[in-house]
Amino acid sequence: MTSLPTAVTSSPNASAAVRVPPGLLRNVLTVAHRELRDAIRSRWFWLYTLSFAILGLAVSFVSAAGTGGTGLSGFGRTTAGLINLVLLVVPLMALTSGAASIASDRERGMLAYVLAQPVSRLEVVLGKYLGLAGALLACLSLGLGTCALILAWKGLRTSPASILWLTGLSLLLALAMLSLGMLISVLARRASVAVGTAIFVWLALVFLTDLALMAGALALRLRIETLFGLSLVNPLQVFKMWSLHAVDATLDVLGPAGLYAMDTFGDRVAILFAAALVAWIILPLGAAMALFARRSPV
């Protein structure tokens, strides 16, 4: 990485708009690298990493204590607790860091400075996205990796495959939430508004939509296929179902809706989940790029 091309300093007169893809890639990487470095220098990154590792360990130890040393392992509270933790922390982390990125640059006047350089707006958004994605990946893998190491050291039982799956799927969830966060960031005028909106969106995705669906299932007696279809709209639910499917190879633990999904789609249900998450990654990011390219950014 020491030989990372630095388009900004090496070719100050080139116009970003007419650059060919290699140049685009270089510019994107430059922005991404800067963003990653800034993120890793920042306090929020280490705060999230540390809290993620500590919470993960707490969840694992508490659930191991719950089994009372029976020596049994299985898809029990450990994985369930970690999924729960990821569902709470990762979207918050990704949404807020995405929301803060462009909006705070704009507020500090950084954005005007960056855009004065020979980089296109698309490159800035994409680069910032990649850089933050890298920071999130570092955060997740450090947090869950430390957790796995300490579990192994203490001899607690967790399946290694499930930890790796959980990390990978958490990253996908983080990418989707980051994408949504960047969209908020592009739309918002001020950083505080962007972060506030992100927190509200987080609240809606984590609690409100699920509670509304639950109420719907109870009051309107929604049909199973409707319930399952609606749950596919929420990326958090998709992440949860995919994690269960990856770790457990089946969804029948989720009762009638899970059985319906397995009966209808079989193992192809994973493709459905992948498609839903990828859509959540691409669509908000695409919208953010389109809006950013059109709007007056500063």
Binding site: I83, N84, D210, L213, K240, L244, G258
Partner: peptide, 13 residues
């Protein structure tokens, strides 16, 4: 009462 609610297992909700 409503087994369909199992869909929301393991979620913060």
């Amino acid at each position: 009462k409503r087994p369909a609610l199992r869909l929301f297992l393991f979620s913060p909700a």
